[in-house]
Nucleic acid binder design. Structure first.
Lengths: 343, 343
DNA sequence: TTGTAAGCGTTATCAG
DNA sequence: CTGATAACGCTTACAA
C-alpha cells in the first residue's frame, strides 16, 4: 500500500492561485503587505490543497527553527513528567514544537549519542531538566552556540545557564524545622540521589538540624522508588531515637511508612513521616501524607518562559525561583512520650 | 552576548580535509566505498570541527527524516508517561528522535493546531497514544500520507492503523471474575473515561458480570485522579450490597479506599477494592492494592517496533497484543458474612 | 574512487 | 505591491 501521495508544496499553491511563490510566502508569513485580491486567492489555494509549509525547508533557509529540545533523565517519574508537561504546554501556546531526549546516564559515550542526535536538528533552543547528576552533565555537554535554559532544584551559580528552580533547600529546611518544632529530638533523612553535594533537600535538612543544635544522624541514601523506600526503611527499624523521618520524595515516604507499619510502628504515633513533592496520591494515603508541595508544571512553564524571553530579546533572562510550601496532614505528630522519656 | 558562533557545515569539513563535499557525505553515510586515505582525513576533520550534519538539510533532500512524532492527551499520568518512555527508549536505540505533541481536547480547532504544527515537520512517522477519546480523534485526523501506528487499550477493527495494545477488556473481565469467585454477589465499577462505548475495562467488567448471571449495577463514572475516586466513592457509601469495587485505575482505587475508610468501612473486610495498572505505589498501599498489572513501557516499545517495521519493510505491521495479569494483594477478600446473610 | 552539479522547499534580496 | 532568483546544507545521479 503506497503512502507517498505527494504533499503539496509552495509551488503547487502558487500555481493554483496563479501567483508567484514569493507572494504565497508573503501571505503566509504576513510580514509584508499583499493586495487583498491575491491574498484571498492564495488563502483559498492553501485551504484547498491542505498546504502545510515544510518546516525543514524553513529552518534551512532561516537558520533557525521553532523546535526546542528537552533533555531529561526520565519521563515517568512525577517531577520530571509534570515539568515536561508544563514546558510542552507553554511551548505549544507560543507556537513551538518540542523534541524530547532522555539521557539515561552521564556516561560520556551515552551522553554524546543522546545529545548528538538531537543537536543535529535545527533547534531554536534547548531545556535541560537538571534534577539529578545526569542533568548536570547534560547541561555541561550543551554547545555554547545554542540558547539553553534549565529547570532545577536549586539556584545555580551566577552567570551560568538561566534557570527556573524549585527551592529544594528551603523545602528541606522548613520540613525539618517543622518536625523539630513538634518536639522531635532530631530528624532522620531518607535521601534521593543528590544533584550536587551541598545543596538540595538533604542540605536543607542538615542545616535545619545544625541551626537548631540537634544531632545530625547519618543520611540514609535511597533511590526514587517506593520499593527503595521500603527496603532502606527496614534497615532503620532498630535505630534508637528515630521518631521522625523526612523522605526525599513521596514515593520513598510511602515505602518507608509501609516498612514501619509492618514492623509494628504506628504512624504518626510512633514515627512521623514527611514526604516531598505532594504527588496526587499523597493526600489519599492512609494516613494522609505531610509533605512539601512543589508545583512542577508551573516550573516547566516558567522554564520555557525563560527560553522564550531569551529568544525574543536576545538576552539571557533572569533566574526564576519558587519556594515550596509545607502541607501538614496526618502522617506527622509530636513524638511519643515514652521515647522522649528515654532521653 | 552573541550566541551565533557559526556551526561548521559540510563544506568546512571538505575544505579542511581537502576533498569534495560528496566525499565527506560518502564517508558519513558509509554507503559507498571511499579510500582509506580520504576517509581518515575526513574523519579527522569531522572530529576537529565537531561537525554535526544538519538534519533539516538532510530531510529536505531525502524527503524523509528520522523524527517521529508522538501524540498524547497527557504526559503526566502513569500509563501515558510510561508508554512514552518505552517509545522514546526504543526510538533512541534505533536512531530516531522523538517529538511530542499533547492534544488536550478533541475540539477540531485545538486538534488542528496541535497536529498542524507537528505535521509540518518532516516526519518519518507518527505514533498516537490512543488511551482516550481524544486519542481516537487525533488518530482520525492523521493524514494518510504518513505512516502512523497507535498504542491502544483494545484491539481495533481489522485493516485500520497498526497498533499495539494492552487488553483492557480481558483485564476488566478477569478482575471481575476473580471478585465474583471470592463470593461477592456482584461487583461495582468506578470507571475512567471510556475510549469507545463497548470496549475496555468497563466492558470487560460488564461481560464478566453477565456471564456469571450477576446483577449489573449502574456504572459510576469518574475521572482519572485520586480526588475523583474519593469524591465519587463518597456517593457510594450508602449503596446496599456494595462489597466489591473494581476501579478503572489505581489512583481512583486509593481515592475510593480513603472515602470508604473515612466512612467506617474496613478494607478488605467490609469492602474489597481492586485497581488497574499496578502503579509503583500500589504495592505499598495500606492495605496493599490488588490490581491488574499492565506493562506500559513494554507497550511503548512494541508500538515503536510496529512503526519501525513498517518503515523498514514498507508494509503495515501486524497488531501486537499483551494480556494483563491480575496481581492479588491485600485489598481484596471474601465479602463479610453479615452482608451475605442479608440477601 | 572521486568530483561536479542539480536539486530538495522555503525565504529574502532585488528589480520592476 | 509583485515576481525572478539566489541562497540554505546536504545527497545523489552523472561524469571523469
Amino acid at each position: 500500500m503506497p503512502i507517498e501521495r505527494d504533499v503539496p508544496g509552495i509551488v503547487d499553491v502558487a500555481a493554483k492561485a496563479d501567483v508567484s511563490v514569493s507572494t504565497v510566502s508573503r501571505v503566509l508569513s504576513g510580514r509584508t503587505r499583499v493586495s487583498d485580491r491575491l491574498r484571498s486567492k492564495v488563502e483559498a489555494a492553501v485551504q484547498e490543497l491542505g498546504y502545510r509549509p515544510n518546516a525543514a525547508a524553513q529552518s534551512l533557509v532561516r537558520g533557525r527553527s521553532s523546535t526546542i529540545a528537552v533533555f531529561a533523565r526520565n519521563t515517568i517519574r512525577y517531577g520530571y513528567a509534570a515539568t515536561l508537561q508544563g514546558i510542552e504546554e507553554a511551548a505549544r501556546a507560543a507556537g513551538y514544537v518540542i523534541m524530547i531526549a532522555v539521557v539515561e546516564s552521564g556516561d560520556p559515550a551515552e551522553l554524546a549519542r543522546a545529545v548528538d542526535g538531537t543537536l543535529s536538528q535545527t533547534l531554536a533552543g534547548a531545556i535541560v531538566i537538571e534534577f539529578d547528576e545526569v542533568g548536570v552533565k547534560t547541561l555541561a555537554a550543551m554547545p555554547t552556540s545554542l540558547p539553553v535554559v534549565a529547570a532545577a532544584g536549586a539556584r545555580r551559580a551566577r552567570g551560568t545557564t538561566p534557570h527556573a528552580f524549585l527551592d529544594d533547600y528551603a523545602g528541606g529546611y522548613e520540613a525539618t524545622r517543622y518536625l523539630l518544632s513538634l518536639g522531635h529530638e532530631t530528624v532522620h533523612h531518607l535521601a534521593i540521589p543528590a544533584t550536587r553535594p551541598r545543596s538540595g533537600r538533604a542540605w536543607g535538612w542538615r542545616k535545619a538540624l545544625e541551626d537548631a543544635g540537634a544531632a545530625v544522624p547519618a543520611l540514609v541514601q535511597a533511590d526514587y522508588s517506593p520499593t527503595s523506600g521500603y527496603d532502606t526503611a527496614r534497615g532503620l527499624l532498630g535505630v534508637p531515637g528515630l521518631t521522625a523521618l523526612l523522605c526525599g520524595n513521596d514515593e520513598l515516604a510511602i515505602g518507608a511508612a509501609r516498612a514501619f507499619q509492618e514492623g509494628g510502628r504506628r504512624i504518626p504515633d510512633d514515627i512521623s513521616i514527611v514526604g516531598f513533592d505532594d504527588q496526587p496520591f499523597a493526600r489519599m494515603w492512609n494516613p494522609s501524607l505531610t509533605t512539601v508541595q512543589q508545583d512542577f508544571v508551573d516550573l516547566g512553564r516558567r522554564t520555557f518562559g525563560l527560553l522564550e524571553q531569551w529568544l525574543a530579546s536576545g538576552e539571557r533572562a533572569q533566574d526564576s525561583a519558587v519556594t515550596p510550601s509545607l502541607v501538614i496532614r496526618e502522617s506527622s505528630a509530636s513524638p511519643p512520650r515514652t521515647v522522649s522519656a528515654n532521653h
